[in-house]
Design a binder for these strands. Structure first.
Length: 432
RNA sequence: GGAGAGUUGGCGGAGUGGUCGAUCGCGGCGGUCUUGAAAACCGUUGACCCGCAAGGGUCCGGGGGUUCGAAUCCCUCACUCUCCGCCA
């Protein structure tokens, strides 16, 4: 949620920034008007409440002294009714205002490209190198077939399409990758590991913004009104919902010391509306594994911290010797809550396309306002934190690019050094 | 799943219709004393909203109701704990 004060005090500038993301000025004006109405109603009801409070005290005292207070009671009843009336109206205005604000995305950072969609994303850099080998590279499904590591048909039998089964050395590779990534984040990058619930309640889904807008993309348990998480961002970020980093019970947040959490979880996504889009094999599935990084940072450092976060995600890929590119997303392609966002895309030579394996976003105070997540600053004041998150990284597409980039002529897949201790061998071997 | 108890400020724990944002203790912060520290003593110590300010308002698990007036009475929901049952 964006700060209503910003709309109130700097209406034109704010509306202009939001226009870059395609928000009509009308919508921002509606928020401004509801806010004005809200404050007028508050003034009215508070004046009346003040009257009621003092009159009630007098009535109590008079009644105790044995005086007749029925006339005063009658008068106060009328005021009470009026207060109730205004409060009802106020509650409605506040609901309307909140709904309006929830439909307004975060204000984009000035440096990001303006554009309607992914076509205007900016390639920031390429990392590593790719040279096509002399032998042809089949796609990941064919490679997987030779290695005997995927079973798609039986996944359909067990559940349905989009629930692949990974077998044998493939399953072990996945486990090795998860452990490699968690160890990198925790041992070298200052993260604390968390193993959260994979199922959360509606309040958590609302806190990070999946609800109410994106309910159809989620799996839901009717009996309990629980939701399967689409990303570890949900439980990890909500861990600090309604909390204050005070330096006593919770860690202190300063410009030098952010709070950094990482978690491996499965992710569940209905992917409603994306039927037929890039659905081959492992490329878009309903259940997948991912390692996620979440940062709670001091507001003065959030964009600088985003650069750090991107590098932390990149380190996962460079460590694996993979070729990838980094994109700065344009105003129209960013997630709703982000002020700035980088995507990491791995090159998949068998598919002949770039695969998004990480999205690193700075949400400024937008997510924190909704989460009510704050910190005590050095001036003693309680303020909203800034939140960031990034994948570090998503596994199915990582596996695809790894198989395709590291495929050898003999059909084996040579593993990078860093994985070998975890995997217990230096390569995946074909079984046929 | 069955039965019971509970949810009050950072924590513990009072408070069953009025002057209660809430006794008290602990903890925190400031001070006195001390070479320093401890102890003791004194003071102070919640969040949010409206307002330039003065000031005002709201908040005792959530929501609703009764009343001139609700932490206190009624309804409802959620959660926690204890015992029993089941269970990796």
């Amino acid at each position: 949620m964006i700060d209503i004060k910003r709309i109130r005090d700097e209406f034109d500038a704010t509306a202009a920034q939001l226009a870059r993301r395609g928000v009509e000025q009308e919508k921002v004006a509606k928020a401004r008007d509801l806010d004005a109405k809200r404050r007028a109603l508050i003034g009215e009801t508070e004046t009346l409440k003040q009257q009621r409070n003092s009159a009630s005290k007098e009535i109590g005292a008079a009644a105790k002294a044995g005086q007749d207070v029925s006339a005063a009671k009658e008068k106060m009843r009328a005021i009470g009714d009026r207060i109730a009336e205004i409060d009802r109206e106020l509650a409605q205005v506040e609901v309307d205002l909140r709904e309006t604000l929830l439909m307004i995305p975060n204000i984009p950072a000035p440096e990001i490209p303006t554009g309607p969609d992914s076509a205007t994303n900016k390639v920031v850099r390429h990392v590593g190198e790719w040279k096509d080998p002399a032998y042809p590279i089949p796609d990941h499904m064919q490679i997987g077939e030779r290695l005997g590591i995927f079973d798609f048909p039986r996944g359909v039998k067990l559940t349905g399409t989009g629930f692949p089964i990974i077998l044998g050395q493939g399953a072990k590779l996945q486990r090795a990758l998860i452990q490699y990534m968690l160890d990198l984040h925790c041992q070298k990058q200052g993260y604390t590991e968390m193993l959260p619930p994979f199922i959360v309640n509606s309040a958590s889904m609302t806190g990070t913004g999946q609800l109410p807008k994106f309910a159809e993309d989620l799996y839901h348990s009717n009996a309990d009104d629980f939701w399967l998480i689409p990303t570890a961002e949900v439980p990890v970020t909500n861990y600090y919902r309604d909390d204050v980093f005070d330096g006593v019970k919770l860690p202190k947040i300063t410009p030098e010391s952010p709070v950094k959490l990482t978690a491996y979880t499965p992710c569940f996504r209905r992917e409603a509306g994306s039927a037929g889009k890039m659905t081959r094999g492992m490329l878009r599935v309903h259940q997948f594994d991912k390692v996620e990084m979440v940062n709670f940072v001091h507001p003065s450092t959030s964009f600088q911290q985003l650069e750090t976060l991107v590098h932390e995600a990149e380190e996962v890929l460079t460590g694996l010797g993979l070729h990838f590119r980094v994109l700065m997303l344009s105003s129209g392609d960013m997630g709703f809550s982000a002020a700035k966002c980088y995507d990491l895309e791995l090159w998949a030579p068998g598919e002949q396309q770039w695969l998004e394996v990480s999205s690193c976003s700075c949400f400024t105070d937008y997510q924190a306002r909704r989460l009510n997540c704050r910190f005590k600053d050095s001036d003693g004041k309680t303020k909203l934190v800034h939140t960031l998150n990034g994948s570090g990284v998503a596994l199915p597409r990582l596996m695809v690019a790894l198989l395709e980039q590291h495929l050898q002529e003999d059909g084996s897949v040579l593993l990078p050094e860093v994985l070998r201790p975890y995997f217990g061998a230096d390569r995946l071997l074909p079984v046929k």
